[in-house]
Design a protein around this nucleic acid. Sequence first.
DNA 1: CAGTAGCTTAAACGACTGTTCAATCGTTGT
DNA 2: ACAACGATTGAACAGTCGTTTAAGCTACTG
Lengths: 230, 230
Amino acid sequence: MRSSESDLTTRARIRDAAVLRFGRDGFDATTVRGVAAEAGVSPGLVIHHFGSKDGLRAACDEFVVAEFLGRKDDLGGDTAAALARWLADVDTYRPLIDYVARMLTAGNDAADALFDALVAGTAKMVDEQVEAGVIREPLDREVTALYLTMYGVVPLVMQRQLARGLGLEQLSEPGLRRSTVPILDLYTHGLYADDRFLVAAQDALGRTPGPRSDKGKNDPNQDPDPPTAP
Amino acid sequence: MRSSESDLTTRARIRDAAVLRFGRDGFDATTVRGVAAEAGVSPGLVIHHFGSKDGLRAACDEFVVAEFLGRKDDLGGDTAAALARWLADVDTYRPLIDYVARMLTAGNDAADALFDALVAGTAKMVDEQVEAGVIREPLDREVTALYLTMYGVVPLVMQRQLARGLGLEQLSEPGLRRSTVPILDLYTHGLYADDRFLVAAQDALGRTPGPRSDKGKNDPNQDPDPPTAP
DNA sequence: CAGTAGCTTAAACGACTGTTCAATCGTTGT
DNA sequence: ACAACGATTGAACAGTCGTTTAAGCTACTG
């Protein structure tokens, strides 16, 4: 995904064309013939190099993940930094971003491995920064790291809706810039003015699923995040 | 999506079968023949009732969205409550949940309309609860509502990864229960121990994109959420 | 009872799909 | 120069897809 045109192996050109198409249109909607046309070769050559369409997908998975994790195989490294690096330059990395976004909602083994690496990276970061006093001690580090990871990648997965919500044609760096401060504000001061919801949930869930939840329950104000269920 | 078997119009049975298949396997991977088999009818009948596979999708979109927004067409209503209601009883609503999750990453007009309704509902809730003093005044209500909406639906969109991260086969009510308190903790106390990141970002972005960002920039600790870009 | 309108089916059509295959081209090694 | 081998192509194959069509079935209306 660097040189714009030739001076690349034909195999690499096909792979790049596939990353582009898979990311832009999705795996099912992309045809071998389409990839071949994008790469300027015949359909048969695509199969010759990758065995099958699924083999092509596997090669793309491997390439994009390696590109994303920066080729250093020490998982749990700087995944968040890599994500930020990509998003800071969304126009050049768009094909890779789109591909990763598709992967994260795909549901195959490669996608699972990628997500696990992201969660591991976030968990490592949480541990380090809690140690350093930058982050509060979360009530549940594991679950917190899991949700922080999901919150971190959801702008990729839902980039269409995010761009529309920001009033943009497509995701762009200035658009994302507008998000930075409000999100840091949320992560710094939280959303709620006090801890009444938290206390209510702790009261209701702390004991074995009991009856009396006379406070957290049917107050008209529901929060927009995952459920509570008395 | 209520009665388990018959006493339903054939058209409704086909529609329910389609919601199930579209949600479980995705639109492209679902065949008209598969929907017909699921509903116990012939493929031709599916087309007879809905005109085309895309017509079937449109009917499913309309049905699921109506079911989700509770049939009250006053958009911006209790969408968060509806979401919580579904997730509190994830096993019975799984087909609808899966379908909505697919919609939100689909990229058609119906999906856009659904997401807009969700954002509108969240924005309304933010306004009300800020008024009531339950929620702090966010720095940017619009962007905050947008991200709160995405954070609210990401457990649906990434339910596979969420379930895996929680150590479950598939999303279940007890699993989600474990998430409640840590998330409320995040929304109550925030993540960071102090406001150094927020202040740094405000310093860097407050003025016109200037040079001097001697603090917020290259500190080794990146946060897992969308980018910052000096 | 006759007739008509809609529900339903089985079979087929045409367009696409991933993949195969034989043949050609270009390069390299000897 | 020749042989050998991988790269590459165009055409073809078999399968699946969405959709069409003609015919049968059911149920209600006159």
